[in-house]
Structure formats: structure tokens, C-alpha cells
């Protein structure tokens, strides 16, 4: 199904929900009674101060804000100094998909944990450097799927949109007559049905 493309302020955005499920390390500042089940390595009922855990982003965000923060959040590994240096050196050569599926979305949350603002700069720099390559890819799409596999979710969507716009423009330039076509979902639905039929024949 086509997903809505709106970003983090969108309460219903599936991508945002998936991105905030990624884990980030944090350290508990105070004793939390009855929350021992958050730490899978103990069977104690309470969670003592000083425990270091990796928890989902949504929980860490909720716990680290407010007047009395419960945890002290740390940067996820991929936004730390060592990884930032790799990105500064040459962002185009990096397989962002392997870093994280939601590199930019997660980064926009993680940058709050970094007071110096280096993460912010790195994100911007990475996107700016890679965008040129991305546009080039979308405009001159070669039949090499391995290039697409190195993009993160945001980039992949931009690539798809750019590619579709390109094909549409080309179609219009070659032939400006508007053909009525079968709807996208109908075509895909038929293909799927055919596949199911083939399964049954076996």
C-alpha cells in the first residue's frame, strides 16, 4: 500500500514509528521500582540507578525529557565520533543502508542528545553530499540494482519519486497524447493473483 510520506510531526506516519523503534543506549539516573523487566539480564524486580541499557528511541525520548529526567541518553553508535569521521571523509562511498535503515530520521532525534551540534552538522553534510549523486542516479537510471541498495529509506523514496518524474517527463516529450491506463493497484493485484495461481498448480 502507498505510504504517506509526511515526516516526524505526523502522528500517523508509519516510517516515523518504525524509526523510533531503533535502540539507543542510555543510563538510568534514579532507581525505578518494578521496572526490572526492562533489563533482560536480571530477574530483580527493581531497576537500580546506574544501569546501562539499550532501549527504543521513543521510550528514551520520553524518559530523558521533563523536569526530572529518568535516564541520561547517549548517542547511538552510528552517530559517534568514529562514524562521523567516515561520513565527513566521503559520504558518497558509504553504504547508508547498512548504517541504519532510517539514518536521517533517527539522526534527527539523536542529535538532541548531542549538545555540541556535531551530529546536526554531519547529517546536513551527509545529505548535501549524497544528494547530487542521488539526483544523478534518478535522472540516468542504470539497470544496476546494487546502487539502490546503498540508500536509506528517505533517499530511496527520493530516488523513486525522481525516477518516476523522469519517466513521466520522457513519456510526455516523446508523445504528448494522454493514454488512459489501467490503474497501478489493478495491475499489481493481477500480477499477484497470477503468482498465487502458479503456486496452486504446483
Amino acid at each position: 500500500m502507498p505510504l504517506p510520506t509526511a515526516y516526524s510531526p505526523n502522528y500517523y506516519s508509519l516510517d516515523d514509528i518504525l524509526a523510533t523503534q531503533e535502540r539507543t543506549p542510555c543510563k538510568f539516573l534514579i532507581n525505578v521500582p518494578k521496572m526490572g523487566n526492562l533489563n533482560p539480564s536480571t530477574i530483580e524486580k527493581d531497576l537500580p540507578a546506574g544501569t546501562a541499557l539499550e532501549l527504543p528511541m521513543w521510550l528514551v525520548l520520553e524518559m530523558s525529557t521533563g523536569r526530572q529526567p529518568i535516564v541520561l541518553p547517549e548517542l547511538p553508535k552510528i552517530y559517534k565520533e568514529a562514524y562521523r569521521e567516515i561520513l565527513e571523509a566521503d559520504a558518497c562511498a558509504v553504504d547508508l543502508h547498512k548504517f541504519n535503515l532510517y539514518f536521517y530520521e533517527l539522526g534527527s532525534y539523536a542529535k538532541r542528545f548531542d549538545r555540541k551540534g556535531d551530529v546536526h552538522q554531519t547529517l546536513l553534510h551527509t545529505f548535501r553530499t549524497r544528494f547530487r549523486q542521488l539526483m544523478d542516479l534518478a535522472d540516468n537510471s542504470i539497470s544496476d540494482p546494487s546502487v539502490q541498495q546503498r540508500l536509506d529509506t528517505l533517499e530511496r523514496r527520493l530516488f523513486k519519486d525522481g525516477y518516476n518524474a523522469r519517466t513521466k517527463l520522457n513519456a510526455w516529450l516523446v508523445e504528448s497524447g494522454a493514454t488512459i491506463e489501467a490503474a497501478n493497484m489493478v495491475i499489481n493485484h493481477k500480477k499477484r493473483k497470477r503468482l498465487n495461481m502458479e503456486d496452486l498448480m504446483k
Binding site: I30, V32, K34, L59
Partner: peptide, 23 residues
Amino acid sequence: STIRIRHAAVKRNLRCLMAYHYN
């Protein structure tokens, strides 16, 4: 603090449910 953590989980679950149906 315990209550806060549980409440965050409630909010999260609600969001997932809402997003599922809305989409």
C-alpha cells in the same frame, strides 16, 4: 518514574493502533 515509563508505553501503543487503522 515507574508510572511515567508505563504511560509512555501506553501512548506508544495507542499511536501504533491509530496509525494502523488510519493508514
